[in-house]
């Protein structure tokens, strides 16, 4: 599996072949606090890069999850819908939001690698 790549909105994506897995970063889950509600996209939905693909809510904040790349959703993660607290426990691992088939893998080039993302986070506060 390829390395994780990040967006400025704190989504991550891991890609294997043309299959991507998307979630939110550990920084994002920490900023939100206790996650209480998650909505994931239906399989079959076509989304463009930057589209609102999922929703994540804590007690005091609500946020859209934007798709880092374009593609067609193949699966949403029902486990985090049933147990939103998983997002706090393993944001960058088991608590992925959705999987999709990439339509334009070249879009990955716009995303940050771990080092670049860490550097970006350092500029935020």
């Amino acid at each position: 599996m390829s390395e994780m790549r990040f967006t400025k909105d704190h989504e991550w994506i891991k890609v294997e072949g043309d299959q991507g897995t998307v979630g939110i970063s550990d920084y994002a889950q920490h900023a939100l606090g206790d996650v209480v509600f998650v909505e994931v996209p239906e399989p079959g939905r076509t989304i463009a890069k930057g589209d609102e693909a999922a929703v994540v809510e804590s007690v005091k904040a609500a946020s859209e999850v934007y798709s880092p790349v374009s593609g067609t959703v193949t699966k949403g993660n029902q486990a985090i819908v049933d147990q939103p607290g998983l997002v706090n426990e393993s944001a960058e691992d088991g608590a992925w939001f959705f999987k999709l088939t990439l339509s334009d893998p070249a879009e990955l080039a716009d995303l940050m690698d771990r080092a670049a993302y860490d550097a970006y986070l350092a500029t935020l506060e």
Binding site: F37, E57, S58, V59, K60, A61, A62
Partner: peptide, 12 residues
């Protein structure tokens, strides 16, 4: 469930 409301969601 106040994330539905204006003070958090604002225009949404």
């Amino acid at each position: 469930l106040s994330t539905r409301e204006q003070h958090i969601r604002r225009e949404k």
